[in-house]
C-alpha cells in the first residue's frame, strides 16, 4: 500500500522573508552595541588623556605633581614583565602542548591533565597571585621581583597557550604527518620539519591572546608585591618593579581630577603597547602563513 501525501504547500513567502529581515536586524544591533560602547569608551579615554599625552609623560617617573608625572618606570616594568613572561611561558606552553598532542598515549592520565588544563584557564587571576606570593616570592625567595611577577603571569597564561597550541597542532592535516612518517622520519623529525612550521601561525595567535591577557593583569601583580611608586627603571630580572595596570589603578584611585586624567593617559599608553604587540604578532603570523602557502 503506497502512502498518499495529499497536503498542499502554503509558501507564505512574505512572512518568511519578514522574519528573516527582522532577525538580520537584531543580529546587526547586537554587533553594533558592543562596538558603539567600545568606541564611546575609547573616545572618552582619549579625550581625557589628550592634554597630558606627550613625550615628557612617557619619559618621566611618577611624581606628586601631576604636571611632572609620567609612566616611564611603569612602561619599562611592563616591557620587562612581558618579555620575561613570553620567554618563560611560550617554550613551556608549546612544549607541553606538543607532548600532550604528539607523544602522550590516550588514557585516564592524559584525560585528567586535559580537564585540569581547561579548568586552570578559568581560575581567577587573583588566585594565581596568591600562588605566586606563596611559591615564588616566599618559598623560592625571589622577593617582589620582576621574575616572581613574570613567573606568576606565566602560570596564569600557560593554560591559554597550551590549549591554543593544541588546537593549532590538531589542525595540521594528518596526511602530512603520515607521509612524513612513511618516508622513515622519526617522531621528532616529523614534528620539527612539518608539524610545528604548519602550526606556527595558530600558535602565534594563541600567544598574542595570552600575552594580551597578561599585559592587563593587575591583581596577581599586586599580590606578588609590585610597587606603586617607582622612580627607577629595573636593571635586571630580580629588581623590584611596577607595571602600567598598577600605575593606572593607583592614579585612578586618587581623588584629584588631574591624576585621573593621568590614569587615562596611561591607559592610552597601555593600549598603544598592546596594539603594537598585536600588530607585530599578526605581521609575524602573516609572514609564516605566506611562507607556508608559497609565492
Amino acid at each position: 500500500m503506497e502512502p498518499s501525501p495529499n497536503g498542499t504547500f502554503e509558501l507564505r513567502r512574505s512572512q518568511r522573508k519578514r522574519v528573516g529581515m527582522i532577525l538580520a536586524g537584531v543580529l546587526f544591533l547586537a554587533t553594533i552595541f558592543g562596538i558603539v560602547v567600545l568606541v564611546a569608551l575609547l573616545v572618552d579615554v582619549i579625550l581625557t588623556a589628550a592634554p597630558w599625552l606627550d613625550a615628557q609623560f612617557v619619559r618621566s617617573f611618577p611624581s606628586r605633581t601631576p604636571g611632572e608625572a609620567g609612566v616611564w618606570s611603569a612602561l619599562m616594568g611592563t616591557l620587562w614583565l612581558m618579555g620575561l613572561t613570553a620567554l618563560i611561558s611560550v617554550p613551556l606552553g608549546v612544549a607541553s602542548a606538543v607532548y600532550l598532542e604528539e607523544y602522550a598515549q590516550d588514557g585516564w592520565f592524559l584525560r585528567l591533565i586535559r580537564v585540569n588544563i581547561a579548568n586552570l584557564a578559568g581560575v581567577p587571576s587573583v588566585v594565581y597571585g596568591i600562588l605566586g606570593l606563596a611559591l615564588f616570592v616566599r618559598f623560592v625567595s625571589l622577593g617582589s621581583s620582576l621574575l616572581a611577577g613574570a613567573l606568576t603571569l606565566s602560570l596564569l597564561i600557560l593554560p591559554i597557550i597550551i590549549i591554543s597550541t593544541q588546537e593549532a597542532l590538531r589542525s595540521v592535516p594528518s596526511g602530512v604527518r603520515e607521509s612524513a612518517y612513511a618516508l622513515g622520519a622519526t617522531r621528532w623529525q616529523v614534528i620539527q620539519s612539518h608539524v610545528l612550521p604548519m602550526a606556527a601561525p595558530g600558535i602565534m595567535t594563541g600567544v598574542i591572546l595570552a600575552l594580551s591577557r597578561a599585559i592587563g593583569e593587575t591583581a596577581p601583580l599586586i599580590l606578588v608585591g609590585a610597587l606603586t611608586f617607582v622612580s627607577f627603571v629595573p636593571q635586571g630580572a630580580l629588581d623590584q618593579f611596577t607595571a602600567l595596570p598598577i600605575q593606572i589603578f593607583n592614579w585612578a584611585a586618587r581623588p584629584q581630577d588631574e591624576f585621573r586624567a593621568l590614569a587615562a593617559a596611561a591607559i592610552v599608553v597601555l593600549m598603544m603597547l598592546l596594539f603594537t604587540m598585536n600588530l607585530t604578532a599578526i605581521l609575524l603570523r602573516n609572514y609564516f602563513e605566506e611562507r607556508r602557502a608559497g609565492s
Binding site: 592535516p173 596526511g175 602530512v176 603520515e178 607521509s179 612524513a180 612513511a182 604548519m198 607556508r292 602557502a293
Partner: peptide, 8 residues
C-alpha cells in the same frame, strides 16, 4: 597515499 599530500 590516496590524496596527493605534498609538504607545503
Amino acid at each position: 597515499f590516496q590524496k596527493p599530500n605534498p609538504f607545503p
